[in-house]
Amino acid sequence: MTSFNTYIIVWLGLLNLTGLTIAVTVLHLGRWSVLGAIVIASVKSFLVLNEFMHLKHEKNMIKWMFLVTLACLTVFIGLTFFDIAFR
């Protein structure tokens, strides 16, 4: 039954993180709030990926595929900003 316990903990963790991200916004931390929101969202998505989608049990190949995709998206946004930020 360990998996059930894990699922419940992860679920409660996700709900709490949602509360936290709203609190961070309401607190008006200025420029840090954007970073805070992204960090919290990333923690949440890490939980969903690893625990719910069982990425941690998957073969390395699937993990690599996922990382390559993220890298691609980062590059797409990054290189676009060489235009946007310097125009």
């Binding site: 290189l79 060489f82 235009d83 946007i84 930020a85 310097f86 125009r87």
Partner: peptide, 10 residues
């Protein structure tokens, strides 16, 4: 009309 920086990098 994209930035000159982007031109050089690409």
């Amino acid at each position: 009309g994209q930035s000159y920086t982007a031109n050089v990098i690409f």
